[in-house]
Simulated scan of single mutants.
Amino acid sequence: MYQIKTKNKILSLDNPVVMGIINTTPDSFSDGGKYLQTNKAIEQALAMVEQGVKILDIGGESTRPGAPEVALKEELNRVIPVIEGIRKHTELMISIDTSKAEVMTQAVAAGADIINDVCALSLPGALQAAAIADVPVCLMHMQGTPRTMQLNPQYRDLITDIKTFFDERIDACQQAGINKDKLILDLGFGFGKTLQHNYQLMNQIKAFDDFGLPMLLGVSRKSMIGKLLDNEADQRLAGSLAAALYGLQQGAHIFRVHDTQATLDAIKVWQACRNPSLVTQ
């Protein structure tokens, strides 16, 4: 089975793993501004640790459609103190959600264990920074950039095109000295995809088992749920849980979510239904 292995930690993926989202941004689509202050971000992270998450994902730049770019210094100011603050309280795995090489380098030096890059290490210096950091990397598929990705996404064949993208990025990683066993895949729901593309992709998650890599599912509160249900981000819990459980049935391993306690509860009930021997009371 799969595992996430760092220099001094091993996280088994035999059971589903919940990754808690901490956005230190003023403009993220769902929780922008809530954790812009370092102390509030750290408090939220530690609350998630108490709930039972296994990874904390710290991001300092919104990647919602049309989001403006954030200067390097500003992104560093947002994320580094949070990582350092969390690390003083827990050895839980921390992921840095960034596409900038310098942020990757400084975040790992501050205590981050995983690089989570929506651009799949395609920006200048990112491959080299990740190779030097020697930590696990999550590669996400995106058509275009956050500024342009939803203008008119088109594919010759959705699944084949995304597979080709991952083939190319995995090869680039290996050429840069990043071993394949350090990689995690994220299909990039909502990143350069129409509503139909997103649900077709959900339906065919198993098509990506061929890569032999763990899969991260990131659909929490996204517009693919809001557009289907015609509701706002703060009303998407039920839809997010439904998508997470469907992804779990399809073989996803890591669930990147805002609503950590609800997701943990839903997974626990799903597991008990699937395997009653887990119930000891």
Rank of each mutant, 00 (worst) to 15 (best):
T164A: 13
D171P: 00
C173S: 08
M104A: 10
E102Q: 13
L127T: 03
Q150R: 08
P146W: 01
R147L: 11
G144S: 12
R169C: 01
I170P: 02
H141K: 06
T98R: 03
I159L: 14
C173D: 05
Q150G: 06
I114T: 11
Q154F: 10
A109I: 13
D134V: 07
Y155E: 02
Q150E: 05
A131C: 14
N116T: 13
L158M: 13
A109T: 13
A131M: 11
D167K: 14
L121E: 05
V118D: 05
E102G: 00
A131L: 11
V137T: 10
I162A: 01
P153Y: 09
A112H: 04
A112V: 09
M140D: 02
N116G: 12
S99G: 13
V137C: 14
I162G: 02
Y155S: 04
V103R: 03
P124W: 00
M149K: 06
S122L: 00
C119R: 14
I159R: 05
V103C: 03
A172L: 13
V103P: 01
L121F: 04
M104G: 07
M149Q: 06
V135R: 05
K100P: 07
A131V: 11
T105C: 01
A110M: 04
F165A: 01
Q150T: 08
V135N: 09
D97G: 11
F166A: 05
I132G: 00
R156G: 14
S99E: 01
Q174N: 15
A112W: 02
A172I: 09
I96L: 05
C138I: 12
G111E: 07
A133Q: 10
D171M: 13
S99V: 01
M140R: 05
M142L: 14
D117L: 04
H141R: 03
